[in-house]
Design a protein around this nucleic acid. Sequence first.
DNA 1: TATACGATCACCT
DNA 2: GGTGATCGTATAC
Length: 198
Amino acid sequence: MNPLAFKKFSLRFVVLSRSFYERDTLQVAKDLIGCELHRVVDGQHLCGIITETEAYCGTEDDACHASKGRTARTEIMFGAAGHAYVYLIYGMWSCLNFVTRDVDQPEAVLIRAIEPIRGVDYMRKARQGRKALADGPGKLCQAMGITREQNGLDLTGSEIYVTRGDRRYRVATTPRIGIDYAVRCRDKPWRFIATNPL
DNA sequence: TATACGATCACCT
DNA sequence: GGTGATCGTATAC
C-alpha cells in the first residue's frame, strides 16, 4: 500500500476524542456526517455511517431540552462534552445525543440516522425483522441496543464511540423535525443530512 | 397527586 | 395523508 493510501486507511479508524465534541455544536453536527458510530453490546460489534444529525444549541434554543432549565433529565447536557445523552420519547423510543461544548453550556447533537455496515444481523433481530433498520433516531437506538441505561456514557470509552470513517459526503441542511412548538428557533437550518459522496 | 404532551414509529387509507 | 401506541417529565394544582 502506498503512503497516501495507508494514511487514508488509518485515518478511518481514528476515534474522535473529547476535543472533537468540545467545539461549536453546529460544526460538530456537520462534521459527524460520514463518521462511523460504533456500539459494542452482547459481545457484538455494531457499526454504521452517520447520515443525519441535528444540533440543539443550549439555553437560547427553545427546541433544546436544556432551555427549560437544569433538571434530572437534562443534567448530563450541563456536564463535559463527549458523553451520551439518551432520553425516552413518546413513552417508547430512545434517542441518542452527544453532549458538546464546555461544562455549563448544555448543547448536544441528536443522531437521527445511520447506514448500517457491521452487525446487520444483530440489528435486524433487534428490529424484529423490519426492513427499516436505523433510518430514524428511535429506530437506530433499538437496532443498536441503546436505552437510558447508556445515558451519561463516556464516548471516549469502549461501549459507544465514533471513528472518523473513510467516506466524506456533501451535507445538506434543513430545519429540524418535530419541534414546531419552538417558535423562536424552529426555522433554523440545524438539521444535517448526507447527500452525494464527495 | 393529576394532567398534558413529546427531538417517534408503524400501520392504515 | 392520518392516527394510535405508551410513559417519563415538566408543570400545574
